[in-house]
């Protein structure tokens, strides 16, 4: 029986050797399946080792017993996984928050929280938005439920381990803004990646310096497309005045006219929260390297060495 580890939300993970043992195949075979079929799709541990969700491996094990090929087994296992999104859409459409919670629990049994959010929660909300519209009661309930669920998950995240601090400027309208769930998802994933977060509305400028003195952010993310460019520019200027020039990234924000000052070089993040989270952390690293280069004294290289 393999020993499993689990995270704060109770998602059980298996190492490659443990997953391979459960499926009665070699670790190389499991990696070959990942290349050929894109399944099972592991997460990476902080040490870059593969971590498989127990539920995904268990689903594949059952499918292998009933299938006639690995392809058909993978297809069957995937079908089982997509059922969760339908369940969540059904629960939210019928105003049943408890059933929606259960659908997410079922999703978490089969995948990591990152994938549950990206493959189940956010697509379900998009589907509800398309079906019922942003002015519907169903969307109001779904957006509120999603916000609650993502914040609850963030509260269960272990304390930050990285020396990375992010300031998120929330330019969404409110909880019912279609960008709001994705912004909450980005917050959750950044927190799970070990970053310290400070999320503030771009409408709040008074006392911003005090907040930044405490947070000491390494990068700024401007998230959401509702607030006007001039509102966002004022907020960005206040941040720059208080904390100096910081790397800036835009998330789910299309800028027709580039923001003035230092934000002209702002990076556009992917709309997928997990990818955006990786890009933000890379941006912070790149910013740190650049500042180290600026502060380190220029070393004089002897002429003959340069020539060699």
């Amino acid at each position: 029986m393999p020993r499993t580890c689990s995270d704060s939300l109770g998602v059980r993970y298996l190492k490659t050797s443990e997953a391979a043992a459960l499926l009665n195949v070699s670790p190389n075979t499991l990696r070959a399946w990942e290349r050929r079929f894109g399944y099972p799709k592991p997460q990476r541990s902080p040490g870059k080792h593969r971590l498989y969700t127990h539920g995904e491996i268990a689903a594949l094990k059952d499918a292998l017993q009933e299938g006639l090929s690995i392809s058909s087994a993978v297809s069957r296992a995937r079908e089982g996984l997509s059922a969760d999104a339908d369940t969540l859409i059904g629960a939210l459409s019928s105003f049943d928050r408890e059933r929606a919670d259960s659908a997410m629990e079922a999703a978490l049994a089969l995948r990591s929280i990152e994938r549950s959010v990206e493959e189940i929660l956010l697509p379900s909300l998009e589907e509800l938005e398309q079906r019922h519209g942003l002015d519907s009661a169903r969307w109001a309930l779904a957006a509120r439920w999603a916000s609650d669920w993502l914040r609850r998950a963030q509260r269960l995240t272990p304390p930050p381990v990285r020396r990375v601090s992010l300031l998120i400027g929330d330019a969404s309208r409110d909880e019912l803004d279609p960008d709001a769930p994705a912004i909450r998802a980005l917050e959750l994933l950044c927190a799970r990646a070990g970053a310290r977060l400070l999320c503030l509305s771009v409408r709040g400028i008074a006392g911003l310096g005090d907040a930044l003195a405490v947070a000491e952010p390494d990068a700024v993310v401007l998230a959401g497309g509702f607030a006007r460019d001039d509102e966002v520019a004022r907020w960005a200027y206040s941040v720059r005045s208080a904390a100096g020039a910081l790397p800036v990234a835009l998330y789910r924000r299309e800028v027709l006219r580039p923001l003035r000052a230092r934000t002209t070089g702002a990076a556009h993040l992917s709309s997928a929260p997990s990818e955006a989270q990786s890009q933000v952390l890379e941006l912070v690293e790149a910013g740190r390297l650049a500042s180290e280069k600026r502060t380190s004294p220029t070393r004089l290289v002897p002429r003959e060495k340069r020539a060699g």
Binding site: V25, N28, A32, W33, S69
Partner: peptide, 14 residues
């Protein structure tokens, strides 16, 4: 006895 082919790893034993 193995369900998965031990030679290629990409097929089920039938």
């Amino acid at each position: 006895d193995s369900r998965v082919c031990t030679k290629c790893g990409l097929g089920l034993m039938l």
